[in-house]
């Protein structure tokens, strides 16, 4: 494991912690897209089906369990916790996320490494992760103002994707047989979706002002 991969995983973990902290501290999920969180829960459940068949390292297994558990916990908070549930604004969170699920699954049926149950669900999770942030980005754009913790959550998620690209470049240069088109191409698409957000994030950071996205 190289430093970029480790840093990527850590920022991913950090983003989840920031989100949990926001929900726990404010007992509110305002500005958070429940649909994006549900998509991430599906992503992790579909990708880590190999928890039961393949063992890579204690680190991998541990992180997989953390990602599954934390994503389910976040969805549970937004759907079930009485106080958090009340702060959820479903009128802002209108993205038709089931279309993303359907399109990703269809793509996985055609584009995969092997036609096996695990491989199709793995490819599906890669495609779905690439677009899972869309409901969140649309929600932020619609609401205009972004509170600090939600902004940092999206920032760390984007940083995680950027670091994974550096990780792939590093691996491509150092590992003779490193080719994984599905993950890399989807990863680049996924990172590109953050470009707009990052642009406004850095402007607000430079001007030391509150993050605002144009309508």
């Amino acid at each position: 494991m190289n430093i970029f991969r480790l840093a990527g995983d850590m920022t991913h973990l950090l983003s989840i912690l920031v989100l949990l902290l926001k929900i726990y501290a404010t007992k509110s999920c305002s500005g958070v897209s429940r649909k994006t969180q549900e998509l991430y829960a599906i992503v992790f459940l579909a990708r880590y089906l190999d928890l039961f068949t393949d063992f890579i390292s204690v680190y991998n297994t541990f992180m997989k369990i953390v990602f599954i558990a934390s994503s389910l916990a976040i969805v549970w908070c937004i759907r079930v916790h009485p106080m958090v549930k009340r702060s959820y604004d479903k009128d802002l969170d209108t993205f038709r996320h089931y279309l993303l699920v359907a399109a990703s699954f269809l793509l996985a049926l055609f584009l995969h490494e092997k036609f096996t149950f695990l491989e199709i669900f793995w490819a599906f999770s890669i495609y779905l992760e690439a677009v899972a942030i869309l409901p969140q980005l649309v929600l932020l754009q619609r609401s205009g103002n972004v509170d600090n913790l939600t902004g940092q959550y999206v920032f760390f998620l984007g940083a995680y994707r950027g670091l994974y690209i550096l990780n792939w470049i590093y691996r491509y240069l150092t590992e003779p047989r490193f080719t994984r088109w599905i993950a890399c191409v989807s990863g680049v698409v996924q990172t590109a979706l953050y470009a707009d957000f990052f642009y406004y994030y850095f402007i607000s950071w430079k001007n030391n002002s509150k993050l605002k996205l144009p309508a």
Binding site: H12, D54, I56, F67, R180
Partner: peptide, 10 residues
């Protein structure tokens, strides 16, 4: 081995 290597990322 190849399959394990392939899915070594999270």
């Amino acid at each position: 081995l190849e399959k394990i290597l392939y899915h070594d990322e999270l």
